[in-house]
């Protein structure tokens, strides 16, 4: 019998795998993909709660999270593109001076 706890623990595992990736990796694009991973596991939590409370609000919230993730990916990748043009690298350590 699969309960909500199974889904919540799976979401926690993938969230912290993504968090470890954000902290460990220095490649800006990989860091970005790990952020998408974390957003996705939060969505899983919303949808799991939505089912086990028989309430569709969680689905709607996950829908908005996806829209925000799409907008964030577009702007973030444009920033990474600009970073690469400036430093010829996407290593996040190369952009630690907070100026151009």
């Amino acid at each position: 019998m699969i309960t909500i706890t199974h889904y919540l623990i799976l979401a926690a595992i993938t969230f912290f795998v993504g968090m470890a990736g954000v902290l460990v990796r220095r490649n800006a694009i990989t860091v970005f993909m790990c952020i998408e991973l974390m957003l996705n596991s939060v969505n899983l939590t919303f949808i799991a709660f939505s089912k086990y409370r028989i309430d569709l609000d969680g689905h709607v919230f996950a829908f908005f999270v996806m829209a925000v993730a799409a907008a964030e990916a577009a702007v973030g990748l444009a920033l990474i593109l600009h970073l690469f043009r400036h430093y010829r690298s996407v290593n996040v350590d190369s952009a630690h001076e907070l100026r151009l």
Partner: peptide, 18 residues
Amino acid sequence: LYVLLSAHFMAIIQILVY
């Protein structure tokens, strides 16, 4: 997993958008 949670619409949106 979304399909298992009866979130059919969200499963399709997941594949299309993500």
